[in-house]
């Protein structure tokens, strides 16, 4: 199945802000669910069906202008958002205490997207972000409660004359949080990919554990990738790693594959697919992940 078919088949994310409520809990009143600015319209509440922890609801949207979702304390939700239009979009996610949110966000056109994530204590988020075309994505994550953890995987594929931009800002505002970001970029043709990463650690956010890695492959002499992971650390007891590499396809690996009878085009393809596939492993649900892997494979052929 195609990506858009799969996402269309999911339970839709409406226009209104949505609050996910744990099963067995009485829905609260509509107002006051969101920290910060009050929503313009009413908040719809979504009560999750009773289900085993491993199976959670998946919601989907195609080309939303705005998505605002609060995962109430202890809830789990999976989201899939597909952007097919070059338009501006804003996604805001809040994970309350112990909540877990997995978001797969895919761009097939040059959209401009703002993504803000706020996490309370012991919450988890897992983000899989894939730019199949040169989009502009700014993602900010606030780890605002102890023992919150975020995991982010981003893939930037640009070709032709495209320009892709990704900024990932992770703010460790309180002690004991963990963040991991893995970014992979592939640029062909005359395209440009830009990655700006920033891990900010607030003055008393001790025992922060943060990692940001960005690896890139250039497919032509005229392609560019500019990768800048940065750290801004104001606490002293922290563990932060970051790094960025930009390279070409491994000629030795291509020789090795061709020596086994695989032609050059397929060898390049296999290597590129390998390079990006590691990144897609955490994505869910499975049919979406399969369709995404296929779409990525198709895209790689054209770079």
């Amino acid at each position: 199945m195609e990506l858009h078919e799969i996402i269309r088949s999911l339970r839709p994310i409406g226009e209104e802000p949505l609050r996910i409520v744990a099963p067995g809990k009485m829905p609260g009143t509509a107002s006051g669910c969101f920290p910060g600015s009050a929503p313009a319209r009413g908040v719809s509440e979504c009560i999750l069906p009773e289900s085993p922890a491993s199976e959670c609801e998946t919601l989907g949207a195609i080309d939303p202008l705005q998505v605002r979702i609060v995962a109430g304390a202890g809830t789990s939700v999976r989201l899939a958002v597909l952007h097919t239009q070059p338009m501006a979009t804003h996604i805001e996610l809040v994970a309350e205490e112990g909540a877990s949110i997995a978001l797969t966000e895919i761009f097939t056109a040059g959209a401009a997207a703002e993504l803000s994530i706020r996490q309370a204590a012991s919450s988890r988020t897992h983000l899989t972000l894939v730019e199949l075309a040169g989009a502009e994505v700014h993602c900010t994550t606030d780890l605002a409660g102890g023992a919150a953890r975020c995991e982010q995987q981003a893939l930037l594929l640009v070709g032709g004359e495209e320009q892709g931009l990704l900024t990932l800002r992770t703010n460790h505002l309180v002690p004991d949080c963990t963040s991991r970001a893995q970014v992979r970029g592939v640029a062909g043709g005359r395209a440009t990919g830009t990655f700006r990463g920033l891990v900010y650690v607030a003055p008393d956010a001790q025992r922060t554990d943060a990692g940001q890695q960005c690896r890139n492959v250039l497919l032509s002499d005229t392609a560019h990738i500019d990768a800048q992971p940065q750290l801004e650390i104001y606490a002293d007891d922290v563990q932060c790693t970051h790094g960025a590499t930009v390279g070409l396809l491994d000629r030795d690996a291509i020789f090795y594959m061709r020596q086994r009878g695989i032609d050059e085009r397929q060898a390049r393809q296999l290597q590129l697919t390998g390079f990006v596939s590691e990144l897609l492993q955490g994505c869910s649900p499975e049919p979406l992940c399969d369709a995404l892997t296929a779409a990525v494979g198709e895209r790689l052929k054209m770079l």
């Binding site: 690996a253 020789f255 090795y256 290597q271 697919t273 390998g274 390079f275 990006v276 590691e278």
Partner: peptide, 8 residues
Amino acid sequence: YPVEIPGV
């Protein structure tokens, strides 16, 4: 020296 091919 056999070559490593990550992800494949």
